[in-house]
Design a protein around this nucleic acid. Structure first.
Lengths: 147, 147
DNA sequence: CTCAATGCAAAGATTTTGCATGACT
DNA sequence: AGTCATGCAAAATCTTTGCATTGAG
């Protein structure tokens, strides 16, 4: 956490309209230096090594501030509760980054629009999130050994 | 819920190795006749109109049985807890449908493989889940009116 | 000095589990 | 008959909130 880091962090906070605090800077540095897709608990554990007195609530609040400010993204916008897919035909999802509503869209309707374009229904595209679902090598091996 | 429905449901259960129960059939019919992406609570509310004595736990267990049996899908495989995306470069996700691990894959590495094919790392592709993220018309309008 | 951020503890929401009872095969 | 499913209540997670205190601008 040198002077450069601090300078960069100040400008990050400024662009997001956030006050610069020690807690936020440490959470930021931890996220920047962590690989993968950490949960708030994991972030909390790492941050506590630098600030033992930080509270989990602050970590949550800070992560949310960063996400609202566009500094980090969430892996999934619908992590709150289980949702069942009732539409059995192949389709994709229009997910509003603000209200998190989900609307189905047929494969054919989604002409892989130009980034930032509007889809027929008036949905303003910000970005795509593509999940490739399947079996990881470890699970394939485990299943091969299963009786 | 006529004889045809029951016959179809019996074969659905058979293919998934599930016992045929009245509760399961009603949950099944509710899911088939519901649009959108219902939560377990919503399913519970609808099922209770047919079986007032059903418990929420049974609805959860039934939904999980259906998902495990491949009868229905979940909208998102990572709905359990918030996860932060630390990889700032454009990428997609390899999500194991079994262990739910998430690995990043560069846009370039993902040659939009043939359905069912294997990716270089050995990941066995089952299907794609594409979320188009952006602003729904309602939120665009609300934001236009905001001060 | 003023407003926002933090820490703590308690509450809320969602989901799972243990166990006794009852239903399917 | 034996196993699996159900219902209930309690427990386990994960996340948010209210409020007093502290810190940033």
């Amino acid at each position: 956490m040198n002077a450069n880091d601090t300078r960069q962090f100040r400008s990050v906070c400024e662009s997001a309209g956030l006050a610069v605090t020690h807690q936020r800077q440490v959470v930021y540095e931890v996220l920047r230096s962590t690989h993968g897709h950490p949960s708030p608990e994991e972030v909390y554990a790492r941050v506590r090594r630098k600030i033992p007195s930080i509270s989990l609530a602050t970590v949550y609040k800070t992560i949310h501030s960063f996400i609202e400010g566009g500094i980090f993204h969430e892996v999934s916008l619908h992590h709150g509760s289980l949702r069942v897919e009732t539409n059995q035909t192949p389709h994709h999802h229009l997910v509003c980054t603000h209200c998190r509503s989900i609307h189905d869209i047929d494969e054919s309707e989604l002409g892989l629009t130009t980034q930032g374009g509007k889809l027929p229904g008036g949905f303003l595209v910000e970005r795509y999130a593509i999940d490739v679902l399947g079996r990881c090598p470890a699970c394939q091996q485990a299943e091969g050994q299963a009786t």
